[in-house]
Computed example of a mutant assay.
Amino acid sequence: MKKIKTLCMAAALGAVVAGASLIPATSAYAATTINVSSTGTSLSSALSKAKAGDTIVIKGTVKSGAVNVPAGITITGNGTGKIDFSSTSGSSGRGLTIKTNGSTIRDLELYNAADNGIYVEGSSNKFIKLNVHNNKDAGLQFSNGASNNYLSFVYSHHNADAAGENADGFAIKLHSGPGNVLEDCTAEGNSDDGYDLYAAHGAVKFVRCKAIKNGECGGIKGDGNGFKVGGVDNKTSGVAAHLDPLKHTLIDCVADGNLKRGFDRNNQSGVVTMTRCIGKNNAGGNFYFPLNGTPSALGYKVTFGKAIIDSCTSSGGGSNNVTGVTFKGTNTGF
């Protein structure tokens, strides 16, 4: 491992007058590349040394315990690197935990974490071309203020927890913040839902994302919705259970062959807009957006904001419920 450092540069600031002193300028930091391999530097060691601007390159397959990612770094596998998190254990056994801002995780395979493969509470992070699988909770989870994160070509699949009720492909839930965007992502074969937005506190945008055959993994069964876009927030301490009306947006998304519903309101009281989305062969119906409901956590009847279905297609699967929908454009199969 080599670190390249620039020389410190000092300069006088301002005119020198009687009694004035020279003030040295701060040191410039040269970004460093740190290689991680099974026979060299460990991931935890690299992260303990990394500073904003540094790049950590995963060479081959490396094993790691749970690690925290500092702000402003890049972790890349260059398309071939893999992190095996089988050394993690218990409910604290997340693979990468990111409570900081401005990092990029890309071109990498991550698997076998005892909890989430990637857990995020930070903001303005990027996740690009990742293969996240076989973790014992959601492949990727964004919670507690996580906002303005960007995901592109992330494949989260075959994640399963013991009870089947937690391991989604993407869990953008439990007080996640606004501005999270997913493009060209796929959730497939997870024990619970493809995408779960339960108790989110910020709207999410999905573009060309897919949810395929979620709801069972290795005989473990959960809810099995493709895109679950709501949920009563009964997890805020000292605050009564309530709905947060959010305007989630789904464009050119596909829900195919999920064991329950393809696109599910799940008590979302905001206006959800689906444009050119396709629901097909979902056992519990392709689109489930009733106008009214009585969420068990609230105990009283609610009239929801009307969802917008614009130029969408429904084929095969169970019956749709679109009593709480405004249709636009040319729709097929409703």
Rank of each mutant, 00 (worst) to 15 (best):
G102A: 06
I4A: 11
C277N: 07
G226C: 07
S42G: 14
I73Q: 05
S143H: 14
V207L: 12
A203L: 05
N134L: 15
S44F: 01
A199I: 04
G177K: 05
T41H: 09
I83D: 03
L298M: 06
A71E: 11
S124M: 05
Y29S: 06
G53L: 07
N214P: 02
G279L: 05
K126E: 10
G53P: 12
K260P: 00
I83W: 02
N112I: 00
T249F: 15
K228C: 14
L130Y: 07
F287E: 01
V36T: 08
N35D: 14
G222F: 03
S27F: 00
G316T: 04
K2M: 11
V271E: 08
A20M: 04
Y111G: 03
N125I: 02
S64E: 11
G230K: 01
Q141G: 12
R265H: 08
S124I: 01
G40V: 06
A113N: 02
G231A: 10
T32Y: 01
L291A: 13
S296Q: 14
S44Q: 08
G169I: 03
S37E: 03
G222Y: 02
N166E: 05
A163H: 05
G177T: 04
A167P: 08
R276Y: 09
K235Y: 09
S103R: 01
N320Y: 07
N331G: 06
G19Q: 13
H175P: 06
N116K: 09
G324R: 02
A146I: 10
T74S: 07
N148H: 10
K228N: 15
S64N: 10
G305F: 05
R265G: 01
Y119C: 00
A71D: 07
Y150M: 07
S176P: 01
L174E: 13
V154G: 02
P295K: 05
D264H: 07
K63V: 01
S27Y: 01
A203I: 04
F327A: 03
G202D: 11
S87A: 15
L298G: 07
S311L: 07
G122K: 09
G95F: 08
N78M: 08
T80F: 01
G231V: 06
G333C: 12
L197K: 00
D196A: 12
V204P: 08
T55S: 13
F327L: 07
G219V: 04
D161K: 09
K306D: 12
A113E: 02
N148M: 02
A283P: 01
T97N: 09
L197C: 12
V57M: 12
L243T: 00
T326W: 02
G231L: 12
V229C: 11
D193N: 15
T186Q: 13
A10I: 09
I58C: 10
H175F: 14
L197Q: 13
L246N: 02
S86K: 13
S315K: 13
R208H: 06
E109T: 15
